[in-house]
């Protein structure tokens, strides 16, 4: 299934125009905030992208649930001003950010604040931006506002997972990103499957730390996916277990079809796992050879 996995991996990657669209949107949000909070011109340094848009593990087709996660670095004076509030400074900061963004995103776009973020839902419902106003500490971690339960300031370190991802993705020659996207596609194709992106990425990294350590070719992807589902079945929460086991059983079936030279059945079975982005093979090749019976094999040796 080398060709099919290669096509599939490509089918679920964002297109250049989708990437550009996302970039325009999150830069637009951060530029507006930068102009309000700083006297300097915007050069992107007050923006910190994290999550799947940072690791480029977001998948097609784009849905309105796929948000761009971005931190906007607020000045120290702003952080100290809101931190000094006697009641819910975090909420006041989020409201201020919302107000600033409302000056730019007026009629058709929707802006809401909740919890720790301000979310801008665009008219086309794609690449909606969740912006976290955050104060960057000297150690590179952030203080972020949480407006719930009276308000608090939380520590946040998105760089940790990004570093782990980059390290794994380099060692596995891109397999970490490919496998993450494939598993996200499985999640999207599996109703009632609640598997958070953050946990999914951690699981993929941990799995590849002990399996396929140096990456894999497309011809090995069926084996990679099958092994991952087995790993997941043994390492996931109860709520995910049945989904993972069903996926593993299907992956084993697809893998066996492939080995039996039945790519049509293999592709149909992979579609049950991944949905219609997985290429469908319409017919099997003519049998190359019938079963050969042999009776006097040579004994393997070793040295």
């Amino acid at each position: 299934m080398k060709e099919e996995f290669s096509k599939f991996a490509n089918n679920i990657r964002l297109t250049p125009s989708q990437k550009d669209d996302a970039k325009t949107k999150y830069n637009g949000v951060c530029k507006k905030l930068h102009t309000s909070y700083y006297d300097t011109s915007y050069d992107g340094s007050t923006k910190f992208l994290f999550g799947s848009y940072k690791t480029k593990t977001n998948v097609r087709p784009i849905t309105e649930n796929q948000d761009v996660d971005v931190l906007f670095k607020i000045p120290k004076t702003t952080y100290e001003k809101f931190k000094a509030y006697s009641s819910n400074g975090p909420s006041a900061l989020l409201q201020e950010v919302k107000k600033i963004l409302s000056e730019k995103y007026t009629t058709t776009d929707n802006i809401k604040t909740w919890g720790k973020v301000v979310k801008i839902t665009f008219a086309d419902k794609t690449h909606n931006v969740e912006v976290l106003p955050a104060f960057e500490k000297e150690d590179g971690t952030f203080k972020i506002p949480n407006s719930e339960n009276g308000g608090s300031w939380e520590n946040f370190n998105p760089r940790g997972q990004i570093d782990r991802f980059n390290s794994s993705n380099t060692v596995t020659d891109g397999l970490t990103a490919d496998l993450t996207r494939m598993i996200k596609t499985w999640v999207d194709n599996t109703s009632t499957c609640n598997y958070k992106s953050y946990k999914l990425l951690e699981d993929v990294i941990a799995f590849l730390n002990s399996n396929f350590k140096s990456g894999a070719t497309y011809s090995e992807y069926s084996s990679v996916v099958k092994s991952f589902f087995k790993y997941l079945s043994n390492h996931c929460s109860e709520g995910l277990k049945n989904h993972a086991k069903t996926a593993f059983d299907r992956a084993v079936k697809a893998y066996d079809f492939e080995k039996e030279d039945k790519p049509k059945e293999a592709s149909e079975t992979w579609r049950k796992v991944f949905g219609s982005e997985f290429p469908l093979i319409s017919s099997n090749p003519a049998k190359e050879q019938n079963t050969r019976v042999f009776t006097n094999p040579s004994l393997p040796y070793g040295y």
């Binding site: 050879q289 019938n290 079963t291 050969r292 019976v293 042999f294 009776t295 094999p297």
Partner: peptide, 14 residues
């Protein structure tokens, strides 16, 4: 690729 059986009563492996 192979499609083999070891002996007349053996297991077929493809």
């Amino acid at each position: 690729p192979f499609n083999l059986k070891f002996g007349p009563d053996g297991v077929v492996i493809i």
